[in-house]
Design a protein around this nucleic acid. Sequence first.
DNA 1: TTAACCCTACAAGTATTATTGAATTAATAC
DNA 2: GTATTAATTCAATAATACTTGTAGGGTTAA
Lengths: 120, 120
Amino acid sequence: MNQEAAIAGFEALASAVRLDIYRLLIRQGPSGMVAGDIATALDLAPTNLSFHLKNLTRAGLLTVVQEGRYQRYRAHLPGMLELLAYLTEECCGGEPELCAEVVALSKRLGAQADSDRPLP
Amino acid sequence: MNQEAAIAGFEALASAVRLDIYRLLIRQGPSGMVAGDIATALDLAPTNLSFHLKNLTRAGLLTVVQEGRYQRYRAHLPGMLELLAYLTEECCGGEPELCAEVVALSKRLGAQADSDRPLP
DNA sequence: TTAACCCTACAAGTATTATTGAATTAATAC
DNA sequence: GTATTAATTCAATAATACTTGTAGGGTTAA
């Protein structure tokens, strides 16, 4: 994870619409949702939704697969954990317990995150 | 943590300058750094640095205390963990192992995060 | 108290992002 | 084969954030 990718990730989450989309898909879990259902659930114009879905996907926070004429989107948790790992690299010379936990989690999941990246 | 606060947090991290500042302070640990030293370390104009420090602080990602004529800034980890908790609320009906870990961490630290908030 | 230093507040110019509508591609249904 | 549905791309407008310079408030040193 480099700085550019991290910025793309945080930028993706720094929008009310995209945050709603992402959390909706997190709640939805592995089944994900097709674009049209997301548009209905959040009352978004198809054009606008597509713009934000693309943003989230390019940031590595969503994956998308085609199903006939539908596009199914899913939250991509490793993308989020890579962001956490990037923030906490070389964390805390002072090592409070809290910090140690975060580092352990992000390190452990960081490796696994590299194995399945969505489209660049 | 509400949507507005979450957006402020992610927006704060969605800038190269602020990401550099935040990670520098994470590395620095509990000792933190005074504004002037941050400016030197990252080669930033004082005015511009002040702008970004304020942004990060208001987002709950930094704390600041006055020390004589210096301002000492520290990374505020609970702020970051609240963001993680907000993202993963009601996460994954399907419950993969990865997801459960994230939820457990964010829930556990979420409560503690509420106890010491920086300035609004 | 005068001077020097640290940092922040304000204002202006520049640049980036969000939203909308029209047109396009792609897949299914008739 | 034509029509219908799903989703995206493109172009234009409106809104927002980043950077820089000047000025000001507060603290320490002479």
